[in-house]
Computed example of a mutant assay.
Amino acid sequence: MTEIQTPRLLLRRWHDDDLVPMAEINADREVMQMIGDGSVRDLEQTAEAIEQWEEEWDEEGFGLFAVELLASGELIGFVGLSVPAFLPEVLPAVEISWRLGRQFWGQGYASEAAHAALEFALEDRGLDRVISICRVGHEASENVMRKLGMELERETTHPVYGFALGVYAIDLTEFQA
């Protein structure tokens, strides 16, 4: 079982009891406003998403980690690696992404977890490059990307929703693990 521990967090595969707390995160309009069309997800949609994330682990050898606080065991969201099939122009590529509950924003958790996931990509999975994609102007995510050493590679348009996207990238041979 793949687990990564940081000073404050545990990154791990998904458990059945993660469904409700992740569904609560996905039901928060503020959390979801910059994701896809901005619509919230319900319990059933969250269950389907977790199932897809676990399938990606089995198929690709990487995926989205459930992220929990070491101190309390509380699920705070996800971070991890996936293939960004929604944006064919960047393929083949592996994307790092994250989604945390709003109460966990601004505390450095996204950066801490994403740094560990990049280290996993480089050292455990042998990837040489990782991208991250966000809506242009999503400052919180752009800040995390910059903290990871990622640089804006290009801007493009979301193929379904039409808004501007920034594609950030890092060559993992230059990543400071």
Results as ranks from 00 to 15, higher is better:
Pro92Glu: 00
Leu70Pro: 05
Phe78Ile: 05
Thr46Gly: 10
Phe62Trp: 07
Leu11Thr: 01
Thr156Val: 10
Arg102Thr: 04
Trp14Asp: 03
Arg129Tyr: 06
Met22Val: 13
Ile131Asn: 00
Phe120Ile: 07
Arg13Ala: 13
Lys147His: 13
Gly73Phe: 07
Asp42Gln: 07
Gln5Trp: 08
Tyr168Pro: 01
Glu56Asp: 14
Val20Asn: 14
Trp98Leu: 09
Ala113Phe: 04
Leu10Met: 13
Leu122Thr: 13
Ile76Asn: 00
Met150Glu: 08
Ala121Met: 10
Phe120Pro: 02
Leu69Thr: 02
Phe163Glu: 08
Leu100Gln: 06
Val83Pro: 03
Glu51Met: 12
Tyr109Thr: 03
Glu54Arg: 14
Ser97Trp: 05
Tyr161Lys: 03
Gly101Cys: 06
Arg129Lys: 13
Trp105Lys: 03
Glu95Cys: 01
Asp58Gly: 13
Phe86Gly: 00
Ala85Gly: 07
Ala23Gln: 04
Val67Tyr: 06
Arg41Thr: 11
Asp18Ala: 08
Phe86Tyr: 07
Ile131Thr: 01
Gly38Ser: 02
Arg154Val: 08
Gln103Pro: 12
Ser141Gln: 06
Ala169Arg: 05
Ala164Asp: 14
Arg135Met: 11
Ala116Phe: 02
Gly137Cys: 03
Val136Asn: 07
Ser141Asn: 06
Ser39Asp: 12
Leu69Glu: 06
Leu148Thr: 02
Asp37His: 04
Thr173Ala: 14
Val31Met: 04
Phe175Thr: 03
Tyr161Leu: 06
Glu30Ala: 10
Glu59Gln: 15
His15Val: 09
Asp28Ile: 03
Pro92Trp: 00
Leu9His: 01
Pro159Ile: 01
His15Gly: 08
